[in-house]
Design a protein around this nucleic acid. Sequence first.
DNA 1: TTTTATACTTACTACTAAGTAAATTGCATA
DNA 2: TATGCAATTTACTTAGTAGTAAGTATAAAA
Lengths: 181, 181
Amino acid sequence: MNDTRSEIIRLGSELIRSIGYNSFSYADISKALNIKNAAIHYYFPSKADLGVEIIRENLNAFNELTKAWESLDYKSQFSNYIHMHDSFINNYWVCIVGSLSPSYDTLPENMQKELQGLVNTILKWLTALLDNGLKNNTFSFAETPRTKAFMVHSALLSSLQMNKVLKNDVYKSIQEGLLNI
Amino acid sequence: MNDTRSEIIRLGSELIRSIGYNSFSYADISKALNIKNAAIHYYFPSKADLGVEIIRENLNAFNELTKAWESLDYKSQFSNYIHMHDSFINNYWVCIVGSLSPSYDTLPENMQKELQGLVNTILKWLTALLDNGLKNNTFSFAETPRTKAFMVHSALLSSLQMNKVLKNDVYKSIQEGLLNI
DNA sequence: TTTTATACTTACTACTAAGTAAATTGCATA
DNA sequence: TATGCAATTTACTTAGTAGTAAGTATAAAA
């Protein structure tokens, strides 16, 4: 994979996090990388192709991270997950799922499928972790692991969105609240 | 307020919930209402004017609802709040805050301010309710009322977004989880 | 009966978006 | 040295989008 291609993905990823998929254009990328709009079409014929690739890269990154955490105890894995997006708050970025979900109905079909895959992967991993941690008393909560996974994921995702609007301590507050299980 | 004007707001509201502010155009509204695009500009010279009005109507609706609940016990008020958006799930709509927040940086300044006002009003009301309910033992939780309000609001908001993507029981699961405080 | 204001329509502008075909550059290999 | 391929630009099309200026129908007020 060459430089230009990976730079396009990197920038596209940032733009999705900061302003959303429908709000960025190939012109935003071409200006920033000092190339022409047609050069982006060379690597990603349609914007949907770029969108799909960006989601895939996020899925790969998630899978690699969680694999690297495998040997850690459940509490550490959970804490790592909760702190996964810490670097986003100063830029007021949201995670890719939080960015794409509200505009889900406007996304091309292949992006919708890819997004579903990403969300399912995250929730499956988190549910298993909570289930294991509940069984060996690392965690304690009343809900089913699946419901708890929904709640944790949702709270975290949305705290990044609220951080964009309120620019206050909402992200840190929710993190602390979540870690206390 | 005449019919056309309120129909524009109603439809605009729906469009924001279903596809987002940046994804709908005056053409979407004019076609649906069988009027011309310029007729919308007559009532709302710029799209931002319409956006601001839609947020304001939501704020008014929230204030009226919570005022109507004032005489109820805290548990009922909390339950009402949690069920506030039940009618959205079958259409896969998100709430206005969940729709606008991820694209916050693309919104015109007056819409940003209005959105902040709405979020602050919701969080202020919810924090006060949780605080009161904690003090009289209606609720029991370890976090500060403010943090708990962040968490409840975030989980609920984001469950509507996940409902769009997964079209499963995530919204109901999170509701049940939240009601158990 | 004329005037005035409201609620629009007609017909347009300026601009931005994604996408494409064809030409060009530059480097590696035969 | 010539050829061929990959990476890119040039120059363009098509299809929207918000927004506007000028005109029109209608009904109530003067």
